[in-house]
Nucleic acid binder design. Structure first.
Lengths: 204, 204, 204, 204
DNA sequence: AATGAATGAGGTTTCATTCAT
DNA sequence: GATGAATGAAACCTCATTCAT
């Protein structure tokens, strides 16, 4: 299943349904979303959904597949553009925030539905692992460059980074007033690198 | 309504149903959990559920109310035991990890259901805010003690801390092999305080 | 079952439940009335109802039995007080209107529930027949007294009278503004006796 | 919404369900009728009912709307055919009896359910008022024609007429032996016009 | 006798999915 | 391919009735 859209009768309609579905999922949650609502939002008949997707679960599955590739492509690309570990980390965070800001529906579905639905658990683990790999690479490079300290638990650092960005996105999603998400990247990276501790008085 | 169980016909049964429900929610998710399954798990008839709770939503609501108070009481208590900001932070993280490790069902429900269900959104915001307040206090104290640097965005620091701990718990929940969660507290606090950056070469 | 109250453990409570039930039936309808509501209205426990009545239906059955006897006793008594057929008819109508006006709950239950519930059909027929007998007697006497014409279909006259009074009561029950029901008796009797036709000009 | 059937996916099925429902309501009463029984009687699946009607109440509402228009159209038509007030009254009564005789289910539902169910009260009042208007017109005309006496309480005459016809229909519905209902019209009208009083002895 | 917590059958309603057109 | 009416399983919830106290 290289590109599920290729297998579809009509790629336009496939994407239309997918986007409509994510909109409905974002607004109502996966379980409160009905196939009828999705069909109406996509401007197709209920039955048509089943020509493109096996069932309701399958829509979300396809979405994860499709959006994930797109987004991770961007992440990888942005990371590669960085000249050093610190820049790579900054680029990743920036891209992460930017992409989620750009597509609010995607953001809601990733943040809310992804962890909730047992059915997608395995899938979500993959996503997380891809992200972790990216971070892992950066950390190792940073250590080689001596900008990141040695002796860090790499797995913990990954959670440290993903967790923070996740929470930053979450807060943004639930905020009453809309502010620029991407603009927070530098402050976040600063926290990652320097922590909250006071710089130790330079001795002697 | 200090303790909702007090209003109940039979507090034992109230708690039995509550615990059973959380177990079912943890295992199957809120939406896939049926009242019948909960009743069976609690060893009561379906109708009995409705003597203690208004409906399925109400069960989760009561749980949040009941568990939250308990847990936040513990958090507050542990924070107060710390002599300085750094110790307070460490105590909070330790307590957080310990409590969630102690009650896995609670952990699953908090991590997974809490954010997903629109219905509880307002409620969850309160929870988050209580947590944020606790962290905010610690940070301010730390700045007064000059162990935390000035000029931090307090709101960002809160997300930084909650996000990380959340992700650490999430990873633990989905891990195949069980390891000790509380034991990670010191490494986490170290990351918070010192970040991942290499210590600047101590100049002479 | 001469007087069901006699068989009851506690005649006071028997009547309290009965009156409470009729009140609830009148307000909510038989089917929307729950045994719990009746119990609450009567100030007894749910289970207590079943010490006095076989089941929910049985309450209404007892009511019909009890109220009917009372009311028909009054009807009979009032009819007997009349010196002639016209007066007897007038007394019946007056008593009928008065009794139903006096006990609005009873009126509602008789008018609304009685015909609706198949279960009580046989019972209702008896009621109607008792009423019909009363009217029949009066008509025959009136014919003997030559105040009512011969050649009337007695059964039709009964329906004519009961139907009219019924509708008068119904209208009163649903009226927004409360007016005196009994006061309509004379106009009704006038219609019965003289119809709506213009008196033929008494020629020659 | 001239004809609700027009809005329906499949007017045939709409009417099939409606008729089936009225049959079930007539036989078992509205409250004992279940959607399942109606579906079975209509030969459709339970869920199909909800494609045509919002809920069980809605079925009865639609029925009132649909049958009422039909029946009142006939009443109006028949009244208009009469050349004078007496004939108009006779035509109304005849039509009323005929229509109810023709559709026994409708008759049962109108007589029994209509008054019982609080939910439809407003609706029923409208019905009654339409009927009352018809009678009112006839009475006024009759007074102009000097066939009906002046000084009658018009509102009482309306109740007098509807009440009687109602009771005649009721009795017919509950009778063991089936007889011709329409054939009673002339005797009823005779009672309306002349009452039960003996013609005053022609003086001189 | 009186209670009222517990029961569980059965009702209404929703909605993912199918399939004849 | 596209439709959307129809299906019926299964969910939630109510409430008459029972029975241990």
């Amino acid at each position: 299943m290289a590109d599920p859209a290729q297998n579809s009768v009509n790629p336009d309609k496939y994407h239309r349904i997918l986007e409509a579905a994510i909109g409905v999922f974002a607004e109502q949650g996966f379980f409160n979303a009905t196939v009828s609502k999705i069909a109406r939002a996509a401007g197709v008949a209920d039955g048509t959904i089943y020509l493109y997707f096996k069932n309701k679960n399958d829509i979300l599955l396809h979405f994860f597949n499709y959006k994930t590739k797109e987004v991770f492509g961007t992440f990888r690309h942005e990371v590669d553009k960085g000249d050093n570990a610190r820049e790579k980390l900054r680029n990743l965070i920036k891209a992460h925030l930017r992409e989620f800001q750009k597509d609010r529906n995607m953001a809601v579905v990733f943040q809310a539905e992804a962890r909730q639905i047992r059915y997608f658990e395995v899938y979500i683990k993959d996503l997380t692992n891809m992200y972790f790999d990216l971070v892992g690479e950066i950390v190792v490079q940073g250590q080689e460059e001596s900008v990141f300290r040695r002796g860090l638990d790499p797995s913990l650092v990954k959670r440290f980074i993903l967790g923070t960005v996740d929470e930053v996105i979450n807060t943004w999603l639930h905020a009453a007033r809309k502010y620029d998400l991407e603009a927070q990247a530098d402050a976040i990276v600063d926290l990652f690198v320097n922590g909250i501790g006071a710089t130790p008085p330079v001795k002697e």
